[in-house]
Write a protein that binds this DNA or RNA. Sequence first.
DNA 1: GATATCCCTATTTTT
DNA 2: TAGGGATATC
Length: 712
Amino acid sequence: MARRIVLSSDRDEPSGSTEDLTIEYAEALNEQQYAAATAGKGPLLIVAGAGTGKTRTLIYRLAYLVETGTRPQQIVLLTFTRRAANDMTARASNLLDGRCEKVRGGTFHAFCLEVLRQHAEALGFPRNFTVLDAADAADVLSVIRTRGEYGDGEERFPQKNTLYSMFSSATNRDETLGETITKRYPQFTSLHAELKALRDAYRRYKKEHGLMDFDDLLERTLELLETDDDVRHQVASRCRHVLVDEYQDTNALQAELVKKFSSVHGNVTVVGDDAQSIYKFRGADFRNIFRFPDEFDDTEVVKLEHNYRSTQPILDLANRVIEQAERSYDKTLFTEKTEGELPALVPAADGDMEARFVAEMVLRLREDGVPLSDVAVLFRSSHNAYDLEVELNQRNIPFVKYGGMKLNEAAHIKDVLAHLKVVENPQDAASWNRALQLIHGIGPKTAQSLIEWTTEAAEDPLTLGDGAPFSDRYAARLKQLFSTLRHVRSDDTSVTEQVEAILDYYQPLFENKYADDHPKRAPDLEHLAGLAANHESRQRFLSSLTLDPIELTALDQETGEDDEPPLVLSTIHSAKGLEFHTVFLIRALDGTIPSRHALREPGGVDEELRLFYVAVTRAEEGLFISYPMTQYRRGQGEYMTTPSRFVEDLPDDVLEPVQLVEEDAVDENAPDAPEGGDTLPSSRNGEAPAPPESTRDDGPPDDPADADGLPF
DNA sequence: GATATCCCTATTTTT
DNA sequence: TAGGGATATC
């Protein structure tokens, strides 16, 4: 263990002087926000309800810390997405002449990655280790499973994705594998020993080949900081202030990391709202936030309750929603925006009609001056938006979808990235596997022996030694592959050139592999090359893609300079922390939200309820909760749905029912026959869904008389 | 040993 | 509805 020489840090000690502050904190913030932003040293817990200016407070705190002498490089801001981190540092920089840009920050995973790149060797990993995303990790598990003949028994052995979630679940909840299996995967209890062996094999494999999955980033960092006190001291010394956003969604591992990061200076600020904890599946526990004062002595607690986002009617609904929870949440949000439209509950005949309703309303809002980008459509899970996506495409309404397919999850992108990864880390057997099997004539077996050849026999893994086990069938391609890779490796190629070189090589393989739809996929490859230009190194490019994935639809849209900012479609999870003028919550069905899967888990319904609460509290002025009354399922055809239990018992003066009427439909009340063909898209142009907002304050709001001529 | 084809099944949320 | 497993064919 290295000898430690402690340098006096007086030089760095923040002055703490409040004499020459350039920002009028007391004027910009309310009393509690001010207290939070300007709190002194030590642990600080900010319990902030939805829309209470939590982000604003955090930004001012950043600025305050910098103004009172803390160097920005010594502040660590941990957030849930990189977008949130960039957003906050940018806003803080605006307040303070750019100084806050140097604040370090990002997600837990990204920050841990930074630490690990520095110290990986101490853990027996190479510094250029590869980060596996969930799909990569599952692929690795699949390879190991097949090789080790784990599933040879009679019982069904879990699939690769299940294996990954199982192991990940154990890590994130800080449980033993046995506990996780008993609690969450009881059907595999009899396989416990085999699963344990498989997990050990997976761990060994990752270490041998320089691979880390998402969980490793957290777990290995913690291991590093726990076992090597010099490293811990070194890392924590650089964290004079640690700020954590969305603390209610941290899990046991992350809470422990926060402790370690702040173990030298003891300055931690965490912000969160227990009623908005929605990441239980990742091991988050809303009670974490209340444990904070027990974990950190002398915690100062500040509560923010004044809501600046929503109108009173929306808050009333939010309060009624959260009241339904088993556990009571101590929420007393209040606002001064007492006026406002009632949130509306909108049943639609079917998913198609629901989509038309939303599209129509979005256009009306735009005519009334609400920009598309200030409107969001939220849903429980990604596929809930399919109908709407089709509708929006037909009407040429630009949108971005968050929480759908990510660019780097698309198979063709993974193919290209595998080649880059192999150059970056030639031990990365998982990527070799992928790259090699693209070549016609190379399957799992040949790939395996080739990998052994390159990584063991040759001194340079990117050359093929004589006598490598290859046959003429694919020899030419293989040589081409290796020369491409060597070119990519050479020092003077930019990341863009590297990607281009791989694309040239990949093109014929690509067209062969995706014979039916490669023209559709091709633009993504171009985008990838474009993205590469923004990155200074291959390694950074790769990790930024895995840790901060790009939404596929964001690229479809090709947002040019003067294009209209698009409508936002988002899973509720991905909408966390955002706000919009008007929110549509679609597919509010029992079985969707709450999800059918959640009903089986203890505490599952409450978690879904919090999710619902998050959705509702995103809205500033307008809120429409809609659902289709019938749905189609493969086997059964159409069937009647049940509205979400969360809206069922709400009185009309909290959530106002609205009836949708087709403009040119014959006066037909409820389409109770499953085959009711009259609502199907017989006419694309004439329908008039909900009456405009204005008719909704007086009496039954179902008169479509004022449905104006529609501009399409 | 690689690949083409067919059938079955499970189906949330994210770093 | 796609992705995985099993089977048949090259």
